[in-house]
Design a protein around this nucleic acid. Structure first.
Length: 263
DNA sequence: AATGTGATCAACCGCCCCCAT
DNA sequence: GATGGGGGCGGTTGATCACAT
């Protein structure tokens, strides 16, 4: 006996959301909050399933979302958390305010998983997967397509991994993290986060910016009752004004004045 | 310029968990 | 304790984009 579907799917729209739909959902939630996702599409005038609305809000429309490239520190943190928590993406996402579980899951599946495989580590268990010969041949295959700098770093990582006495998972993780940090400090990679992050502060009518600390103070801070949403604490202390904004308690009411032009 | 291939990511599906009754 | 409903979660798909040939 299967469960009843969450909603009557007949006549419901599927696929990519239009700007008009986004605006409807955004305006509805900002003005009314979320009591019951099942009722949201009906009340907002959307021909969508409640779950679809929830997903769209969480993964795309939430004002505190942090879009843009992943930093090395974030990637390291994901690897570390995944080794402890496994595929519990929502738990992992809780450590990254502004990032969604879907985003983390996608990044893991498309980037980090490959990175670990090339290092001879099983992305599932974070333990070595193959005989050393196989690890090397795989790595060589990868190295053929890598830049010289990447090759040097990866060879060092691989050597350290292979040379470890007992391939203990913890040790491998430490090696990996250490190497990744070393790679960062040598300037072989750079984050494009600063270039891509949106200037959210400019969206507010009454904000003050403090360049010396990078913090943003929102003057219009009314009690938060329209939307009940918890912004978690961040384990990674990034020197980033946008991150500071993310970490601060959000007076959500300020978004309601943004209207149709918010996006 | 056209086509093929791989990467990325938004969105869906179905199951599970929690809570109210 | 059993049941049903809603929300949340993880796996997967498919459209789109970027790059290579």
């Amino acid at each position: 006996m299967g469960r009843q579907p969450c909603c009557d799917k007949v006549g419901l729209k599927r696929g990519p959301w239009t700007i008009e739909e986004d605006n409807k959902l955004m305006n509805f939630i900002l003005n009314n909050g979320i009591q019951c996702w099942r009722l949201v599409p009906k009340l907002a005038g959307l021909m969508r399933c409640g779950k679809s609305c929830r997903l769209r809000w969480i993964n795309y429309l939430r004002p505190d979302l942090k879009r843009g490239a992943w930093t090395e520190a974030e990637e390291d943190m994901i690897i570390e958390l995944h080794s402890r928590l496994g595929n519990r993406w929502s738990k992992i996402a809780a450590h990254f305010p502004g990032r969604t579980d879907n985003e983390i899951k996608n990044h893991w599946n498309t980037k980090i998983k490959k990175k670990l495989k090339f290092l001879g580590l099983d992305p599932l268990t974070h333990k070595p997967i193959d005989q050393p010969e196989n690890c090397v041949s795989k790595s060589e295959e990868f190295l053929d397509n890598s830049s010289l700098g990447e090759q040097e770093v990866l060879m060092l990582e691989l050597q350290e991994t292979l040379q470890s006495e007992d391939f203990q998972t913890q040790q491998n993780k430490k090696n990996l993290n250490t190497n990744l940090h070393e790679q960062r400090s040598t300037g072989t990679s750079s984050s494009s986060l600063d270039e891509e992050k949106p200037n959210l502060a400019s969206m507010f009518n009454e904000t003050r910016e403090f360049p010396e600390t990078g913090s943003i103070e929102i003057q219009n801070s009314e009690p938060l009752d329209a939307i009940s949403y918890i912004v978690g604490t961040n384990d990674i202390q990034l020197e980033d004004p946008f991150q500071n904004w993310i970490d601060s308690p959000l007076p959500w009411d300020v978004f309601s004045s943004l209207g149709e032009n918010f996006l």
